[in-house]
Design a protein around this nucleic acid. Sequence first.
DNA 1: AATCGATTCAACCGCATCCTT
DNA 2: CAAGGATGCGGTTGAATCGAT
Length: 302
Amino acid sequence: MGRPPCCDKMGVKKGPWTPEEDLMLVSYVQEHGPGNWRAVPTNTGLMRCSKSCRLRWTNYLRPGIKRGNFTEQEEKLIVHLQALLGNRWAAIASYLPKRTDNDIKNYWNTHLKKKLKNMQGGEGGAGGKRPAVPKGQWERRLQTDIHTARQALRDALSLEPSATPLAKVEPLPTAPGCATYASSADNIARLLEGWLRPGSGKGPEASGSTSTTATTRQRPQCSGEGTASASASHSGGAAANTAAQTPECSTETSKMAGSSVGAGSAPAFSMLERWLLDDGMGHAEVGLMTDVVPLGDPSEFF
DNA sequence: AATCGATTCAACCGCATCCTT
DNA sequence: CAAGGATGCGGTTGAATCGAT
């Protein structure tokens, strides 16, 4: 279709984001909500490609993001999901609401893949190398989509609407919508702190843990753009598919479920594990699991 | 203390998909 | 229905950081 690149290369800034740029982006999203990325550079004056803005938001500035220090539960989950879904990081990330697809992808490539390799190297048996991807991509996608659809249907019929990660999560009445952007402002605060600290090499990431300097404005209103706009801009299509494929959606749910850090993750994981181990094993995924990952019980992996 | 290789991770690129006209 | 535009996704890259020598 011969379309031009998403952004003209002229005058588009590249490379690491500065705190000032982050602030501009965050305050824009605070006002307008995520989405309509095309308009972001023009409306904010950012000399960035719309893609870059979206990426920066989803991977770094978005509220509720947990960075670094993957727990053992999360590792297990990633291994499971990778076996099930392949390298569909966005889909995997939708089951780890606080993680971004990029983060998971990086973690897989740097840690888990290596770990897996060592495991299999150690076992040595059966030719060493596992078959890369025995099934066609489309076939696996089809199977997972069938699964997600089935799961969504089951949810719809179930009396526990939020019983699975695939369930479309309604905004909870207690949902502190404002906290979402407040936590985003925290990100910026962290960022600025790291940036201002002389000689702290990599500003943003270095202080990823616990700094609470509120140097940025925290606007107390946000009119719930989080859930609304992210999904509203791109609604439609197969519900199950959408639910499974939009990390935005799931991250919003995470914000609802656990607005305070560490509050809701444990139950979520136990639920997920149940879903993966109990339900998933008995059906179509069995074939996938055995085909793709000859790990037997993935828990042996740890 | 300096150097070099390995590792990590933020960001970019190109393609695919979805949506609108 | 087709074309064009916007967004999402996965692979890859390269700079920063870390650890060993």
